[in-house]
Nucleic acid binder design. Sequence first.
DNA 1: ATCATTATTGCCCAATTGGACTAAAATAAC
DNA 2: GTTATTTTAGTCCAATTGGGCAATAATGAT
Lengths: 237, 237
Amino acid sequence: MTAVTTRPRGRPARTARPVEETRSAILDAALKLFSERGFEGAAMRDIAALASVEHSLLRYHYSDKATLWREALSRLITHMNAHMATGWRATEGMPVVERFKVILRHYVRYCARHPEHARIMVQEAVGDSDRVAWIAEQIVRPQHRGLARLLQGLMDQGHLPRLPIRSLIYMLSAAAQSPFTLAGEVRHAYGVDMSDAAEIERHADALIALLIRDEVAGPEPGPSSAQRAMGKTMLGL
Amino acid sequence: MTAVTTRPRGRPARTARPVEETRSAILDAALKLFSERGFEGAAMRDIAALASVEHSLLRYHYSDKATLWREALSRLITHMNAHMATGWRATEGMPVVERFKVILRHYVRYCARHPEHARIMVQEAVGDSDRVAWIAEQIVRPQHRGLARLLQGLMDQGHLPRLPIRSLIYMLSAAAQSPFTLAGEVRHAYGVDMSDAAEIERHADALIALLIRDEVAGPEPGPSSAQRAMGKTMLGL
DNA sequence: ATCATTATTGCCCAATTGGACTAAAATAAC
DNA sequence: GTTATTTTAGTCCAATTGGGCAATAATGAT
């Protein structure tokens, strides 16, 4: 009565999927559930199910839950670095303001495509779990270092108000991420889908326009600040 | 053998604490743990322990976990409304820019004192739980309605660039909340305690200066935009 | 004084959790 | 072909989970 058609134990006949693909599927699933439910809330078995794999396999490839989390985030960082690096490289010779605008837009697009990123940051940035320390060391510090230099340059040239750099960095990145991190809320409150490409660009435009408010050019007496502000936005960015 | 000194079942002798205080302690604990670990991650028993109460009592006062969550958030909203209302009332006659600055500072202080608020918004703004819908209806929509009118006025008078209102609201509130929501990260990455009063005011200054960049006054030719930006910040806000 | 209601605890349960261990097929090494 | 290694699945376990329920002291009503 116990064994009628119980599937035999070990490795199944279909090893069509190469190992790396399996590992990647596991990390994808882990990232998704960790970001949606937090570390404790994400069950290993659910991650396994999402990756179409038995839950014991997670422990085979990644020795425990904390390791799985770290591996998933490591891969995310690698992707982010790759994405942002193209932005920095592509603008190497540019005047600093133009460069900043391009990089901002790049960043907004990344936030839109990877809302898990910001969500995990928020979920973990509390208490004293090892994970906060890991994030601060692996992600926040390197990222902020590069950004701080760029922002300092912009302030020195008067393209940005002279604010405490740390505040500026936090305001800037939060402003970039916010509508995507809160995409569910936006959908319910406004009926708008923030994964739509047009919405993404609109938000990038808005962020850039909020931060950089250059004069049109030259020393002409200039119109009222109201008219200036309006004209600016009409230009697209 | 089973019963040696087993405490008798029912209500204990010490009913020193009035009921309302118990209920309030439960909501405090619930808010704290929901914000730190998310809905699924927060265990009823842990909430109970934090409120120094047996876990069955939660089910007596609030029939189930979802109800407890809703009650905790309702009380949070009430507090927020009360806090912000004083800001709005206190500035009723003021010119719109000054009013905006005071209200912004008010909001930053609220964010600093109640980082749970933003953290819960982020954790829930995903998927299609009933909780997202509840938040959008109860919190986001009313709050944004009031803010939108104020921002529209500021744009019309040229104190803010003319951006899509929705984007502006999300950028603005995220920028206000960010360093407090991520306080753990800030502590690890910068060694700074964002609950410190001076840091709170510094961040409020930064936010205000980033958003409002009025001319000093009058139509004099004016210094370079670099000098202007610098002078501005030196003024405090 | 008696009785109903309120506020609280202790104990029970079925389901779920992270993890340990075992079984076995696929693959590579010889 | 045999053997070792890699990769997978199934089973068992102790702990924890949300929720159900009975017991009982405090409080209030009569």
